[in-house]
């Protein structure tokens, strides 16, 4: 019989092997995407793992293309993301704080209505949203921001879960000392919720970079590709042009890689907040 130590060693080696294997399986397609972005290809389809010919032309092309104003898309998306993140965070935190810390008569109905509204598929609202924005002449980036911010009021679950974990005694103590609820919110609630603010802001910041549906519906009618955000612009690049689109396919991949990098980094940074948010929310339901 092998010694206990020996057994442990074998078990560890097995576990490392398994983990490495899984990691390779998981990361392999991602590496392939990055490789493909450096490949020379004019048929709109990448059929090999290792590019037959490496080129930087895709990256140069995407930044200099006249048809696909990539830099404009980046700027637009950044603009939308920053404003939407600021306003959405404010809205979400307000709602979450109120629902978690304050008690008022319509609190429960509000929670129930929010739950019900969240179960309607979002697509159902798209046609209506389009016409609402149109009637205010807002079929542009500002309209898109409004849509994102307007929806933020219902995305309070994670933040509410976080506030629920803060003992109420802290608030009560502050009120005993004569603080108004506003003061409690500003001087106690907000400082304590820094992690959840960061999380909410990052999530709201990322949303415009990955949403290709709403942005498409709202921005496409302008007919000016300089008004697009990056997700719709890239998506549009491979979906609307026939024939010649094959020429741009590798440029599309290059563009994708460029925006995937910052988002991935952001996400890796905030994974801690993400976990805290989910588990805290799950604790209290």
């Amino acid at each position: 019989m092998k010694s206990y130590k020996e057994q442990r060693r074998i078990s560890l080696i097995l576990r490392y092997t398994l983990l490495a294997l899984l990691a390779i399986v998981w990361i392999f397609p991602i590496i392939w995407i990055i490789l493909a972005s450096f490949s020379y290809n004019d048929t709109g389809f990448v059929s090999t793992i290792w590019p037959e010919k490496f080129t930087l032309q895709n990256y140069i092309g995407i930044f200099t293309s006249k048809q696909f104003p990539f830099v404009h898309w980046m700027a637009n998306t950044f603009f939308v993301a920053v404003i939407s993140a600021t306003l959405s965070t404010f809205v979400t935190i307000c709602v979450a704080y109120v629902l978690s810390r304050l008690r008022f008569r319509l609190r429960k109905p509000f929670l129930q209505i929010a739950l019900v509204l969240g179960m309607f598929p979002g697509f159902m609202s798209m046609i209506a949203l389009y016409y609402i924005l149109k009637s205010f002449n807002m079929l542009n980036l500002f309209g898109l921001i409004l849509v994102y911010v307007g929806g933020a009021g219902l995305g309070f679950y994670v933040a509410k879960g976080f506030f629920d974990t803060i003992p109420r005694a802290i608030d009560e103590a502050a009120e005993m000392d004569g603080a108004t609820k506003w003061q409690t919110f500003i001087h106690i609630g907000l400082p304590m919720s820094r992690p959840i603010i960061v999380y909410t802001a990052l999530m709201a910041f990322i949303a415009p970079w990955i949403d290709f549906i709403f942005s498409g519906i709202i921005l496409s009618s302008s007919g000016n590709s300089k008004n697009y955000t990056i997700a719709y612009g890239l998506y549009n690049m491979v979906h609307t042009t026939k024939g010649t689109s094959t020429l741009y396919f590798t440029q599309f991949i290059a563009g994708c890689v460029i925006i995937a990098i910052p988002i991935t980094i952001l996400f890796v940074i905030m994974q801690k907040f993400y976990v805290n948010g989910i588990t805290a929310g799950a604790d209290k339901g």
Binding site: G216, S220, S221, G223, N224, S225, T240, K242
Partner: peptide, 12 residues
């Protein structure tokens, strides 16, 4: 005349 691109291409 204002020449612009259509949202999803002439096929749509």
């Amino acid at each position: 005349v204002k020449v612009t691109q259509s949202p999803n291409g002439s096929a749509n």
